[in-house]
Deep mutational scan, measured.
Amino acid sequence: SPEVQIAILTEQINNLNEHLRVHKKDHHSRRGLLKMVGKRRRLLAYLRNKDVARYREIVEKLG
């Protein structure tokens, strides 16, 4: 489901952010981070168009 995919991506994004705080010059990982953020944004847009209630619920849960 989109909610699960968004939750997994959010966790991976948070982990990668911590990694990049330590390894500032790791541009390869930064590119992966940007791809993940874009994918999460697309999934959220899809969910917002399909079911606003589910969209609001996941945004509330994940912050």
Rank of each mutant, 00 (worst) to 15 (best):
S1A: 08
S1F: 15
S1D: 12
S1Q: 07
S1R: 08
P2E: 13
E3K: 02
E3N: 03
E3A: 06
V4W: 10
V4Q: 12
V4E: 13
Q5I: 12
Q5K: 07
Q5T: 06
Q5Y: 14
I6R: 00
I6C: 03
I6V: 03
A7C: 15
A7G: 06
A7V: 08
I8M: 12
L9P: 00
L9V: 02
E11N: 07
E11S: 08
Q12H: 12
Q12P: 01
Q12Y: 11
Q12V: 07
I13W: 01
I13R: 00
N14D: 06
N15G: 08
N15R: 15
N15V: 13
L16E: 02
L16G: 01
N17G: 06
E18I: 07
E18W: 06
E18A: 10
H19E: 04
L20Q: 01
L20R: 02
R21N: 06
R21E: 05
V22L: 14
V22S: 11
V22T: 14
V22W: 10
H23A: 05
H23Y: 07
K24M: 07
K24L: 09
K24A: 10
K25H: 14
K25N: 15
K25E: 15
K25A: 10
D26Q: 03
D26V: 03
D26A: 03
H27M: 10
H27G: 06
H28L: 10
H28C: 13
H28T: 11
S29F: 08
S29K: 08
R30T: 05
R30W: 14
R30S: 04
R31V: 12
R31L: 13
R31K: 12
G32R: 15
L33G: 00
L33E: 00
L33K: 02
L34C: 14
K35R: 12
K35S: 10
K35Q: 11
K35M: 11
M36Q: 02
M36V: 06
V37N: 02
V37I: 13
K39N: 05
K39I: 14
K39F: 08
K39R: 12
R40I: 15
R40F: 10
R40S: 02
R40P: 01
R41I: 09
R41Y: 10
R42D: 07
R42L: 10
R42K: 13
L44K: 00
A45W: 13
A45F: 06
Y46V: 11
Y46R: 07
Y46F: 09
L47S: 00
L47Q: 00
N49G: 08
N49D: 10
N49E: 13
K50E: 13
K50Q: 14
D51W: 03
D51E: 04
D51Y: 02
V52S: 13
A53Q: 13
A53N: 12
A53P: 05
A53L: 08
R54G: 05
R54T: 07
R54W: 04
R54I: 08
Y55M: 01
Y55Q: 01
Y55F: 09
R56G: 04
E57C: 06
E57I: 06
I58G: 00
I58H: 01
V59Q: 03
V59M: 15
V59T: 06
K61Y: 10
K61R: 08
L62T: 03
L62P: 02
L62R: 02
L62N: 02
G63R: 13
G63C: 15
G63I: 15
G63V: 13
G63Y: 14
